[in-house]
Amino acid sequence: MSRKPESSEQASATAGAHAHPNYIAIWSILLFAMLVSVLLGELEIPGFTTTLIFTIAIVKAYLVAAHFMHIKSEPRFVVLILASAAACLYFLFIGLAPDTVFGPFVE
C-alpha cells in the first residue's frame, strides 16, 4: 500500500539531503581538542583542570552531535526528544545528590 505520494516528493527535496560540512576539518578539531585535554590531564592543576577537561568534552560531544549526527539540520522535534531524556536525568541527579554526596542519614 503506497500512501501519500505527494509527501514523498516533497521529502525528496527536504528530508533526504543533508548539507555536508567539511567533515575532515571537524575531525581535526576533535583530535586537537582531545590532545589538549590529555595534556591538561598530565598537568594536574587542581580544580581548574577538571572543569576545563569536561568543558572540552562537552564541546567535543556538541561537535559530533551537531555535525556528524546532523542534529543541526534535523527538525527541532529531535532536539526535544533527546533533551527530554536529559531532563529526566537532571531530576535523577538532583534527587540522588543529597543521599549520595552527603548521606546516608543513619542515626
Binding site: 531530576f91 543521599d99 548521606g103
Partner: peptide, 21 residues
C-alpha cells in the same frame, strides 16, 4: 519523574528530600 522518593520516606533518605517529594 519527580515523585519517586515518597517510597523511601523511612528508608533513611535525607530528611530534606521528604518535603519536596
Amino acid at each position: 519523574f519527580i515523585v519517586w522518593a515518597h517510597h523511601q520516606f523511612i528508608a533513611g533518605i535525607d530528611p530534606r528530600l521528604a518535603t519536596p517529594f
